[in-house]
Design a protein around this nucleic acid. Structure first.
Lengths: 128, 128
DNA sequence: CATGGCGTTTACGTAAAAGTCAATTCTGAT
DNA sequence: ATCAGAATTGACTTTTACGTAAACGCCATG
């Protein structure tokens, strides 16, 4: 496990711009350390970026992604906070379950559409 | 099955503004008919709106949603078009499969985070 | 030493997806 | 016929998530 990654290494790995990574830093999603003014990204930042990209692909906004990331951090020490956090986790989970239903339905409709295409091709005497 | 729905009925059903539905019309996603200047939405428009909302929840952009909606329409009559369409369907499917992987991973991490919370609560002697 | 390649900051710009507001216009009920 | 409430249009504004450009620092290499 590497100790540090440069910003350009990570832009290449995740196919984002430096602007984007700096933006995520401004937004408090990642906290690379500095050597002088230069950012040094540690494995934990890299992992966070991976989670951010996942969230983006799922259509979460930056602030939703921030909420999810908060959840991954150390569980808090106080009972009320812990219960609140569990409630938040439930919410996100429901959110994701809705997305999963949406996803399955869309996949099913695509399957259906493809079948129709294949049938149509068969009618036209094309071997698929 | 109702013949027509008013714009406000649908804004209530889908919890969107009239501005939004008009925007979708401008974008060519729906084509309500008119009586005078008033829009009358048919069941097919309603169904399209349902699909649009699903696409939005999954983080698709309007133009991506447009592409998906195109796919649901009648399969084209020409062989080349049909093959192209099948290719497009494959692409979207891959897209959705990636989303599903992202989704499962995120759900797994949430499960893990919740367990940590529950354990922490147990340590503190709280009965869940 | 100057040239190129990263890296940084600051500031302004922009596209997508609506929100908001004002001015009208329609229309259904009384 | 009229009058309130719904609907429409058009223009302008806002938010999010970056893009882009300018201007400069650092340092390794020929």
């Amino acid at each position: 496990m590497r100790e540090y990654y440069s910003i350009t290494e990570l832009t290449r790995e995740f196919d984002v711009s430096t602007r984007t990574l700096r933006f995520y830093e401004d937004e408090g999603l990642i906290q690379p350390v500095r050597r002088g003014r230069t950012r040094l990204f540690r494995p934990t930042d890299r992992h966070l970026i991976r989670q951010i990209m996942r969230g983006k692909r799922l259509g979460f906004s930056i602030s939703e992604i921030r909420e999810i990331i908060q959840i991954y951090k150390e569980p808090p020490g106080e009972v009320g906070q812990l219960k609140l956090m569990i409630k938040r986790i439930e919410e996100k989970r429901n959110d994701l379950r809705q997305k999963r239903r949406d996803l399955e339905e869309t996949l099913a409709e695509l399957d259906h559409a493809e079948e129709a295409c294949v049938e149509r091709l068969a009618e036209l005497g094309v071997n698929t």
